[in-house]
Design a protein around this nucleic acid. Sequence first.
DNA 1: CACCATGCCCAAAGCGCTTTGGACTTGAGT
DNA 2: ACTCAAGTCCAAAGCGCTTTGGGCATGGTG
Lengths: 343, 343
Amino acid sequence: MNLKTLAQELGLSPTTVSRALNGYPEVSEATRMRVMKAAEAANYRPNTQAKRLATGRAMAIGHIIPISTRHEIVNPVFADFIAGAGEVYARRGYDMVITIVPDDQEARAYAELRSKGNVDGVLVHAPKVEDHRIAMLDHLGMPFVLHGRVSGIESSYSWVDVNNVRAFTRATDFLLDLGHRRIALINGIGNMDFARRRRRGYEQALMARGIAPDPALITEGEMTEAQGHDAARAMLQLSNPPTAFLTASLLSAMGARRGIEEAGLKMGRDISILTHDDELGYLRNGTAEEPIFTATRSSVREAGRRCAALLIDQIESGDRTPRHELMEAVLVLGQSTGPAPTR
Amino acid sequence: MNLKTLAQELGLSPTTVSRALNGYPEVSEATRMRVMKAAEAANYRPNTQAKRLATGRAMAIGHIIPISTRHEIVNPVFADFIAGAGEVYARRGYDMVITIVPDDQEARAYAELRSKGNVDGVLVHAPKVEDHRIAMLDHLGMPFVLHGRVSGIESSYSWVDVNNVRAFTRATDFLLDLGHRRIALINGIGNMDFARRRRRGYEQALMARGIAPDPALITEGEMTEAQGHDAARAMLQLSNPPTAFLTASLLSAMGARRGIEEAGLKMGRDISILTHDDELGYLRNGTAEEPIFTATRSSVREAGRRCAALLIDQIESGDRTPRHELMEAVLVLGQSTGPAPTR
DNA sequence: CACCATGCCCAAAGCGCTTTGGACTTGAGT
DNA sequence: ACTCAAGTCCAAAGCGCTTTGGGCATGGTG
């Protein structure tokens, strides 16, 4: 069923049927009703490709996911972010097209998406400390929103980010207030911008109290259970071990807890853990009423929603002035933190 | 830059340029070369929408992800599956379009995708024990491949699945061989077909040795860390507790381990854990050489690859005879299992 | 009564590609 | 010398929609 035959059946021109369906005013309410009814009955829906070609709008947003050929890790945050963004796309009539690409071909993938014209804009993930994608997208003239920021260039493009510095200073302050002085940071990969910011927050809080960050208490890596475990285990064997761990993900926190318990210590009493919590669907921090870990909490799914909304707003309005949304993490109290043990 | 202007610049007709680019034989090698060079230089790529409209092929595969409005869990397996499928799509020139939809509108979403014509086929996820989607898709006449199967109807459509029954009988047999008699099953949600199959495998193995499955040792639910923990904890307080746990996911296994250790027991010595491992990128079971948990292992990412390849093959060949791929899980030995403690 | 704005509808062009159905050369075959 | 196949190329017709630029009543206004 297409426009033409539907129009014929109705004894109308395709023009009128199209206008009736798209809500243009040049058609009487009576015929509009008639058209709508007929379309419904015939289960007619305009062909997407034709519509796109005619309007010049792809009605689609792209996400490019680079996959490293070496350590093929899929960003654990990805699924939830996608879910959030996807909600918004669906609501506003956009398709979400995801491109998986070997990481050495990422630039080419953006250029192709652009020249083939199959998206109206892209959402950019996981910015690194030095990220060339911004310049590239600017050059391509492709609308985009960054989930996160690149330190140094923050005003020339649109982004949605969590206030990572603030979250981690608050977290560190909280532990300091509990009397902890040896606080370890189990961070994400060092060249990720968000990890850099979290470290900055942590170090600032320490230095504000006159404590010099101890490199032995800082570790960076992929945020897995094993990472948390191995880091905690190693640090607890130091001659001057930490009394608290600050971890960048719930998975790392779970690993750290295991390391602690293996050492015969009790979390929340002998050793504290404070973690960042992205509120991933499959990884809950206890229940809403009773969190397990004390955590800085910020929904990555909500971030997905906001990124998507921001990008669509920009595309539809044609307004290219950069916009920013800074989300604040809340600090929720769980059972994993307590006063520093006196000894 | 479009076909017409490129053709003009070359002093050729659009027809010839199109044919040169698409590898048709009706064009001399000399001009083909000339065209290719010019296209490369002009950074020309045919407009996707126009191509799609002209050919009638969307060159895209759809994935519909229903999101429950109640417990908004994103399937933890999703990201890895997508990554695997996406690799194949990229290689074969297809787009992946993902639709997030409230679970009560899933049927409508498929119908829309079909009538709007923006995909050539769909990949169907997470089949339930009674799954109406197969009948619906058949009715819509939309090519699809199911990741998993629906017990009872297995021949009328194409699927890729892990041999869950076999994996779980083997796992159970392995534990039985180690002398375990009280083996608990911490399973996925009961109305998921894969969970049903796993349970079947588990029960068959027990009964083959004359052991009646004990309902008190079987629990079903979302496969989270908390689930594993709570289930293990509860079961260990039974008057006749299990000596081994069979879990459906690494996350559940991690939770079970925590429950075990809280009870003052040692995993692998006092209590065994054997888990299924989907080889998710962000959730590794130790290292390849040294797995932590003994596990039935099967890569969900590889399943994604196979599903995608199968679907594209079907679409391109036009051959609608159902095809099936059954993947066997391997049983890898870790440190979480040992002989049943004698007492 | 003439005029014009308004409301409603349509024919046709165009979006950028593919593909059908020739047209025109060449060179080999008879 | 004539025919015919093979090799190259092109004009034009779609694909299914939107949108431009009218056309034709109708009814209110001067």
